[in-house]
Amino acid sequence: MNSPLDTVSPPSAPPPPRRGSAAWFWLIVVLLLAAGGGWFGWREWQHRQAEVRAAEADADQRLEALNQRLDTMRTNQEAQNRRLVQADNTNRVLRDELHGIGQRAALIEDSVSKLADPDRHGAQAMRLDETELLLTLGQQRLLIAGDLEGARRAYALAGGVLDGIDDPAYLSLRQTLLQESAALKELGIEPRVQAMAKLDALAQGLSLPAATPAQAAAAEAPWWKRAFGVLIDVQPRDRSIATHPDDRAAALAGLQLEITLARAAAERRDVEGYRAALKRAEAWVLRLSPPSPAQQRQLAQLRELAALPLSLSVPTLGTTLQQLRQLRTAG
């Protein structure tokens, strides 16, 4: 019979440790460390990118501020230049006004010295009539006849007559006469005379051109071609240059005639007729010579002559006469 001790089985041994759980644990730890490192690196990269963007934004702001400063400096510089130009114009006006004040002071001094003269008893009305007549003659000689020298002499005589008037009421009139006389003295040669002189020089410089190679070849042609070449002349349809001596002589005569007509139009101040005659003269030049630098120079000379004015432009002409009549009417 077995004892109870015999029926009790011996205690079982503990199970061996599981290696797979430790490996998974360390794998999870490594993954966590890698995820943490990646997250930390990503945060650091984002931080650096934010710093780079902030630096770029700061650089853009500084560049924009610098451009604004440059624009402001340019604006200030332009404003300074405008102020300098305005100051220069103001100084010029002030100089002119000062010069006018000096002239007026000299005229006042002259009038006061004449007023202090006990012997000043002249026919003022007669002097004013003579002044008005001289001013009218000077203006008409310049406008009608284009006589610039005659107008200058008339104004000089009017100034001498007006100097004999002691009335201070005509002080501004004397100053106006001085300014108008100065404007006439500044004028150069009368435009109509200059245009006619250039036309005369152009007409004297014209001459028949030398024989062309075609004419020389015609001179050496056979007798039958020389005999019948006068009656029949075969040329291309698009040729407009005169090659025959008779044609060239007629074209040169037509050119001389147009220049003469232009001179006559300039003498009577007919601007339309003057320019029309020179335009027709250009056609005769094209008829006389083939395209060449000499032809272009001659055409340019004709166009330059056509652009010349035929009348003087004096904006202040007649100002003294008008002021004199107003003063006499008011008096």
Rank of each mutant, 00 (worst) to 15 (best):
Q49N: 05
I101L: 15
A145H: 11
R280N: 05
G150W: 13
Q295G: 06
P16K: 07
L143P: 00
E56A: 02
L98Q: 11
A227V: 05
P15R: 06
P213S: 04
F228S: 15
Q61I: 08
R18D: 15
S311W: 01
L308W: 07
P168F: 02
I101S: 14
E304N: 15
A151G: 01
I28K: 05
E220N: 14
A195F: 10
G100T: 09
D6R: 00
G254D: 14
L142K: 05
E180H: 09
A156P: 03
D6S: 09
G331F: 08
L208Y: 00
E130A: 14
L32Y: 07
L312V: 15
A105F: 07
P213E: 04
S9C: 04
P236Y: 01
A59Y: 01
Q61K: 08
G150Y: 14
R152T: 09
R275M: 06
W39R: 15
A145L: 14
P236R: 03
L70G: 02
T131E: 12
D117H: 13
G122Q: 10
S21D: 14
W24D: 06
P309K: 11
D166K: 09
R269V: 05
G205S: 13
F25T: 07
L148K: 03
V112K: 12
A216M: 12
A151S: 09
A283F: 00
T72M: 14
V193Y: 05
Y155D: 01
S9Y: 01
L107G: 07
V193F: 09
D60L: 12
T75H: 13
R153E: 11
L286G: 06
L142I: 08
L208Q: 02
L70K: 10
G38S: 14
L206P: 06
R174I: 00
D6A: 10
Q322E: 15
E272R: 10
A262E: 03
N91K: 10
S9K: 09
A87W: 09
E132L: 13
A216G: 02
A158I: 15
R268I: 13
L286T: 08
A183Y: 01
T136C: 11
G38K: 00
A182N: 10
N89T: 11
Q68H: 08
W45C: 00
Q140A: 10
P290Y: 02
A300F: 08
A65Y: 02
A250C: 00
R104T: 14
A34G: 15
L199N: 03
R248I: 11
E220K: 15
E44A: 15
R43L: 13
A35S: 12
R127I: 06
L137E: 14
